[in-house]
Write a protein that binds this DNA or RNA. Structure first.
Lengths: 138, 138
DNA sequence: CTTGATGCTCTAGTCACTAGAGATTGTAGC
DNA sequence: GCTACAATCTCTAGTGACTAGAGCATCAAG
């Protein structure tokens, strides 16, 4: 059995975050000692590591809830876990594409600025007028 | 002069967002009509477009505040604007690198899952154990 | 037996909005 | 002038995923 601080060190999840996960029902409320302190079984380490790792991978909490629900429901969970992860992958690809477009635009803006700096500031100008740039849609 | 709705349509910034920008001092409080409605001068369109575009590029509000402060302070603003944009570019590069690493990991996880699905679910396993994966650090 | 670390609950703050209530005002058609 | 109804006003509260802090109780070590 572990105290919340030990669990925190074992999983690298901060103590208030553990309590927060309990509050939103992501982590089951553990037993308490006579003095009202949380005592976690060893399995809590696994579950919390799972949550932490999924969060690091950018899964949001509803998605993690769905993944956790797949464990121990009898059916082979692979297909549904796969679908959740695949949807997440699509989102990440979109975010990378968007960020790459922004990167190019800002980098272009800075290059323009180097050439035009003496005259007038390109950075402010480009930011002021959307039509100066190559990126489309939010 | 424009009403808030017209300003909203001209800039594609939603009405409550315009009021929010006023509240946090990003957009100066405009004159009011006798019946207390906001009347914006035409310059507000420029300023709000600037803000919107910078937000789309991922600048946060303190950064935008800094950029706006550069306008009209007499000094050639290029160098400071350049520094702000350049720092921002670094951040974007880091975000792209992180997302790309996550993408690769999830994609690898899914590929493993395809091969091992009949035995046991790789997706859940990889998520449960950080050591299964290639990505390092948060 | 005291000290300092750890734990508890509770409230409020973060960021950049978004949503909604409930009231008033402006505009168009009749 | 009357009636809809769209636009606007202020105000409060909610979002996601925590984080920070107050103020108290309890535990382990010296």
């Amino acid at each position: 059995m572990l105290g919340i601080g030990e669990l925190s060190r074992a999983t690298e999840v901060k103590v208030p975050t553990i309590r927060y996960y309990e509050e939103i029902g992501l982590l089951p409320a553990p037993a308490r000692t006579a003095s009202n302190r949380r005592r976690y079984p060893l399995e809590a380490v696994q579950r919390l590591r799972f949550i932490r790792h999924a969060r690091e991978l950018g899964f949001d909490i509803p998605a993690i809830r769905a993944l956790l629900a797949l464990e121990g429901d009898g059916e082979p969970p692979c297909h549904r876990a796969d679908a959740i992860a695949r949807a997440h992958l699509d989102q990440i690809d979109q975010r990378i594409a968007r960020l790459t477009a922004l990167r190019d635009e800002i980098s272009q803006m800075l290059a323009d600025c180097d050439r035009a700096c003496d005259d007038h500031c390109r950075v402010l100008e480009v930011l002021a007028d959307h039509s100066h740039c190559r990126h489309q849609e939010h």
